[in-house]
């Protein structure tokens, strides 16, 4: 599929160059339909990948949440039609960090441009709008958005070890 390959290539091209000399790099490269049921398949595949390469549980869970919230947003809100679309998801692990890029061909939208929700409201005033993106931004060390070749590409990065912790 030309579109899928393009989305994956774009996603991959936007990941910062982590291939330092001597660094071991593992890649999980997926394409999924714009179907909410597909999110679970992404997380299943990602969990296998994370287990195989010993990604720490806290990092794995943070990406589980990010994949669920971000792909849900794309599938629920990005498209102006009801046609099938492909979403590219690339995860890349090296010795320092796990990175992810998600690419879609929906309308231009930067999820990180929105203001953070007011998390100090009490129960009656709280709603859930914007909370998913707020979680992602907080759980990750770095997030970015770029519109490239008519596609939205979001990238995420989280270090495998907390800063200052023992290697």
């Amino acid at each position: 599929m030309y579109l899928a390959r393009t989305l994956r290539e774009i996603a991959t091209s936007l990941l910062p160059d982590g291939a330092r000399p001597g660094a071991v790099v593992h890649v999980l490269d997926l394409e999924i339909p714009n179907d909410l049921d597909a999110i679970d398949l992404v997380n299943e595949r990602f969990n296998d990948f994370a287990e195989q390469f010993h990604v720490p549980a806290a990092v794995r869970r943070s990406f589980n949440i990010a994949l669920d919230d971000l792909i849900n947003n794309v599938i629920s809100y990005a498209y102006d039609d009801t046609d099938p679309h492909v979403i590219g998801v690339v995860l890349r692990l090296d010795l320092e960090a796990l990175e992810c890029a998600i690419a879609d061909d929906g309308r231009a939208y930067d999820p990180f441009a929105a203001e953070a929700p007011d998390i100090d409201l009490d129960l009656d005033e709280r709603d859930i709008g914007g909370l998913g993106v707020h979680l992602v931004r907080s759980l990750m060390d770095e997030v970015s958005y770029e519109r490239r070749d008519g596609k939205n590409v979001v990238t995420l990065r989280k270090r495998l070890a907390e800063p200052g912790s023992e290697p």
């Binding site: 949440i65 919230d69 859930i128 909370l131 998913g132 979680l135």
Partner: peptide
């Protein structure tokens, strides 16, 4: 429970 996303928080 392994994890909860904003959809679960809702």
């Amino acid at each position: 429970l392994e994890y909860i996303s904003s959809v679960g928080l809702r």
